[in-house]
Computed example of a mutant assay.
Amino acid sequence: MSALRVFLIALLLAANTVLHVVPLLVVAVVKALLPIERLRAASSRWLTGIAESWIGVNGWMLDRFSRTRVHVEEDAVLEPDGHYLVLANHQSWVDIVVLQRVFNRRIPLMRFFLKQQLIWVPLLGVAWWALDFPFMARHTREQIQRRPELAGRDIEATRRACEKFRAIPVAIMNFVEGTRFTPAKHERQESPHRHLLKPRAGGVAFVLDAMGDGLHAILDVTIAYPGGRPSLVDLIANRVPEVRVQVRQRAIPVELAGGDYQSDADFRARFQQWINGVWLEKDADMERLLGPPASSGRRTMG
Rank of each mutant, 00 (worst) to 15 (best):
G214L: 12
H195F: 08
V207L: 13
P192D: 09
A205K: 07
H193P: 08
G212N: 05
R188M: 14
K198I: 12
R194I: 00
Q189D: 07
K198M: 14
R180M: 08
V207Y: 02
R180W: 02
K185G: 10
F181Y: 11
K198S: 12
H193G: 13
K185N: 10
H216L: 10
P183D: 14
L197K: 04
P199D: 01
L208K: 06
P199E: 01
S191F: 04
G212L: 09
R188A: 15
H186C: 07
H193M: 06
E187A: 15
E187R: 15
A205V: 05
G203N: 08
H195L: 08
V207P: 04
K198Y: 00
V204K: 11
A205P: 01
D213Y: 09
Q189P: 07
S191H: 03
R200L: 11
R180S: 12
A184R: 14
L196N: 02
R180N: 05
P199R: 00
Q189A: 07
L196E: 00
L196V: 05
A217D: 08
G214T: 08
L196K: 06
F181S: 03
F181R: 08
H216F: 04
A217H: 07
S191M: 02
A184L: 14
K185T: 12
G214E: 12
P192E: 06
R194D: 13
K185M: 13
L197M: 06
R188F: 12
G202Y: 01
T182V: 02
Q189I: 05
P183S: 10
D213N: 13
R180T: 00
R188Y: 01
T179K: 04
T182W: 11
H216Y: 01
P183V: 12
E190M: 14
G214Y: 11
F181K: 03
D209G: 13
Q189K: 10
K198P: 00
P199M: 08
L196P: 10
A217R: 09
E190A: 15
R200F: 07
F181T: 01
E187H: 15
F181E: 01
P199T: 02
M211I: 04
L208T: 02
T182Q: 07
R200E: 01
H216S: 15
K198G: 00
K198L: 13
F206R: 08
F181Q: 09
H216R: 15
K185I: 11
H216D: 14
T179Q: 04
A210T: 10
A205C: 03
L197D: 05
E187Q: 14
P192N: 09
D213H: 09
G214I: 06
R200W: 00
T182G: 08
A201F: 09
G212V: 03
L208V: 04
R200Y: 05
